[in-house]
Nucleic acid binder design. Structure first.
Lengths: 252, 252
DNA sequence: AAGTGGTCTAGACCACTAC
DNA sequence: TAGTGGTCTAGACCACTTA
């Protein structure tokens, strides 16, 4: 197996950056899949011809990027989307009092369509290429307060059907990972005010024309590859969008 | 000078966490102020009785938290808020096409008041304690599209006046740092839809009752100490709020 | 007991900045 | 040239997990 021998520097400048890129390449090539363990640090250090310390520095960054997860005594794993881990890193709607809860998702519609020029540009695919588009209605604490219009390219989700989507056992991003080996590792989001249209107001529990929160998201896999476009609408009467936090002081 | 000798473990569990906490304590005690250089790694390693590698690991985390900044050949500095550095980490309103620009800020009003119970709870001060409250109107690309209602406790900003606030030479958070040694290192933000009231609509260029974006922020200094509460209103006709990004892939 | 990651060390050498 | 942070090494020892 070609291990991207790192004899020639030139690319990354430093050894550990080269190692990091080589590991990202291995991840993108599905050599290690979501939830799987990767080889031990000792083995990887030998494979890439660096010391343990250098290899660890590469992994440090991949862990900081939420791409890998370390477990002492067990090994290092490809980060996996799970209900109880990282879910609220991507689901950022909470009740006004701060209470976080998992949404109950209902699939409202599902269809295959051609990408508009706009959508194609966001997904970095050809205009007119096939995409799957579906609509979710979400309930929090039993209240219907949110919808999601989601589009993914057929090329990266071959064989996706309404049935398999509806019957997925876990979260959507976990489903992407397990079935299509698509790892969502980051998103860009923009938030603005919009007005509920006739079709949506019933799903959101608001009157037609009522102001709602609109969140437009692009989700990325490794190497900033866009894999999903999502427009969410939220009735913010009792729920809010959580913006950026920061500062990770340790608890004393 | 007491250097918080680290002979007794117990607290952090690991040496570098202890060193990190000791450095945070030194920062909180204003031993090193915003923009200043801290002692060299070699000196700090001696001071805390650890090896360079361990000392570096502590600094690594403080750098990751945007509390310190390293400059090869120069030294390590206490991160400083500047127009051209980190400004858009806290100012998250951009034009719909993605264009980022610095806001032109006008101080609309300034007064001293007593903290309501609600505000006092957010700022972790006594109900009825004095706070300064002021209102900014912001223009982007020459358009008035945003307001900020800002409250800070008098106890942490002694002697703040309208004149000195108005005449500050740089950004607000830089001003906090230089004049009051208050270092904003993180924020919590919640976003929802609100309606423009009579007093505000003129400042935002919308009709009374028009839907606007409301952002409620708490800004924190070291050890999660709240130092500012801010409610921003945005006309999102042409401007949007930038939510969380993630994934820091290197450019190849 | 064996294997994993986590911490810590002591030092070499490089790259950058100032004087 | 001297001082800074940046990289890389080789290894010891600890803590955790599984068997």
């Amino acid at each position: 197996m070609n291990t991207l021998t790192i004899g020639t520097p030139a690319i990354g400048g430093t050894r550990y950056k080269e190692v990091k890129q080589a590991m990202l390449a291995a991840l993108a090539a599905h050599e290690w899949k979501g939830g799987e363990t990767i080889p031990s640090e000792k083995r990887l250090a030998e494979r890439f011809g660096v010391s343990i310390g250098t290899l660890r520095k590469a992994i440090d960054e991949l862990v900081a990027d939420n791409i890998l997860v370390r477990h002492q005594g067990l090994g290092t794993f490809v980060a996996q989307h799970q209900r109880d881990r990282h879910f609220f890193r991507f689901f950022r709607v909470v009740r006004a009092d701060g209470d976080k809860t998992y949404p109950a998702v209902s699939l409202v519609s599902f269809k295959k369509a051609k990408a508009t020029r706009e959508l194609a540009a966001l997904l970095n695919i050809e205009t007119g290429a096939r995409v799957f588009t579906f609509l979710n209605q979400l309930a929090l604490h039993g209240e219907h307060v949110m919808t999601e219009h989601i589009s993914v390219p057929e090329s990266r989700f071959p064989g996706l059907t309404e049935a398999v989507l509806r019957d997925r056992p876990s979260t959507l991003y976990n489903f992407y990972q397990d079935v299509f080996h698509i790892n969502v590792v980051g998103t860009d989001e923009r938030v603005r005010v919009a007005l509920a249209d006739e079709a949506e107001c019933a799903l959101l529990g608001v009157a037609p024309g009522a102001p709602i929160l609109e969140i437009r998201r692009i989700a990325y896999s490794y190497h900033q590859m866009p894999v999903e476009v999502r427009i969410s609408h939220v009735n913010t009467e009792h729920y809010e969008y959580v913006g950026t936090s920061a500062s990770h002081d340790e608890p004393l």
